[in-house]
């Protein structure tokens, strides 16, 4: 148990926050909702001499929609995402994942940025953002850059963010109309972190050929990740011809590609089996939607 104190800093802009990070380096941390960081600090997992509280920076808490994308400020509370009407159609999986993250009280404090930046393998916001090809805006004292969600997670609890960078925004492109998506989470109880979570998204052309396939999993590897070898099996197929054999092939591929571990929530074998099952459910759900659209 940690008994030491820290200096509390309250920057009023993202750049000011990054300047503080430049100054204090690894002994400082950005504090968003604090629902992860507080426990890590109490348990002495992280070094925290300077707490840089981001919650008083205006303009990092928003959900904006324009013609081709929905932009979400990094400090947006998970509860605001859960109820946002901007996140509809195939983007509604972001809302669903938010609604299954922790408890209502935690969702009122936790931020989407904190969920992603913590880079836990089980982060519920990760699979939907991965399959929707989200782009992340990093800000530092000297400028900004964009990084694809697919290149964001590097290793267990490690992201592409440099020590002095802050995640400012998550931009989610609006997929073409002929897209369907699905988010699934298996947990011990409705409020627990995932044993396995996953999302899938598929887009077809006007003849029903799959032109884009994304499948992403959490809690089955050191980071949330896309299972590209499984995506490739479906790419280019005709949605009206997808049968049990093909679905079985894809789900077995997922089982082969993931590297689950055994922990208190489940064994590696259980996670592998559940991942196969969730793959089937997600594909069937999506294909049914897409076939329905082709026939209507």
């Amino acid at each position: 148990m940690n008994n030491t104190t820290f200096k509390y800093l309250r920057p009023i802009s993202p750049v000011k926050a990054c300047e503080l990070k430049d100054k204090y380096g690894e002994s400082s941390r950005f504090w968003a909702g604090g629902t992860d960081l507080l426990l890590q600090w109490k348990e002495d997992v992280v070094c925290l001499d300077y707490c840089i509280d981001l919650s008083f920076i205006p303009d990092l808490d928003y959900i904006r929609k324009d013609s081709d994308a929905v932009s979400i400020g990094a400090l947006t509370r998970v509860a605001s995402i859960e109820t946002s009407s901007e996140l509809n159609h195939s983007l509604s999986i972001i809302r669903e994942a938010a609604g299954e993250l922790a408890t209502p009280q935690i969702r009122n404090t936790a931020t989407i940025g904190g969920n992603i930046c913590r880079a836990a393998p089980s982060a519920d916001m990760a699979p939907p953002l991965l399959v929707l090809d989200a782009e992340m805006k990093f800000v530092s004292a000297s400028g900004e850059r964009w990084v694809a969600m697919d290149a964001f997670f590097l290793d267990l609890n490690q992201t592409a963010l440099e020590e002095n960078e802050l995640l400012a925004e998550i931009k989610v492109p609006i997929p073409p109309v002929e897209t369907a998506s699905c988010f699934l989470k298996i947990g011990r109880t409705v409020i627990d972190i995932a044993i396995v979570n996953m999302a899938a998204r598929m887009t077809m052309d006007d003849r029903g050929i799959l032109t884009d396939v994304r499948i992403a999993f959490g809690a089955v590897a050191p980071t949330p990740l896309r299972i590209k070898a499984a995506e490739e099996i479906l790419l280019g197929t005709d949605v009206s011809t997808i049968d049990d054999t093909l679905v079985g092939k894809v789900s077995n591929k997922v089982g082969d590609e993931i590297k689950p571990i055994t922990d208190v929530r489940g064994t590696a074998e259980y996670r592998r089996e559940i991942s196969r099952v969730l793959t089937k459910r997600a594909i069937e759900n999506i294909i049914q939607t897409l076939q329905g659209r082709l026939n209507s």
Partner: peptide, 12 residues
């Protein structure tokens, strides 16, 4: 809105 008083800094 309901929040957990044990999970946040008073400063927040």
């Amino acid at each position: 809105k309901p929040v957990l008083a044990c999970m946040m800094l008073a400063m927040q």
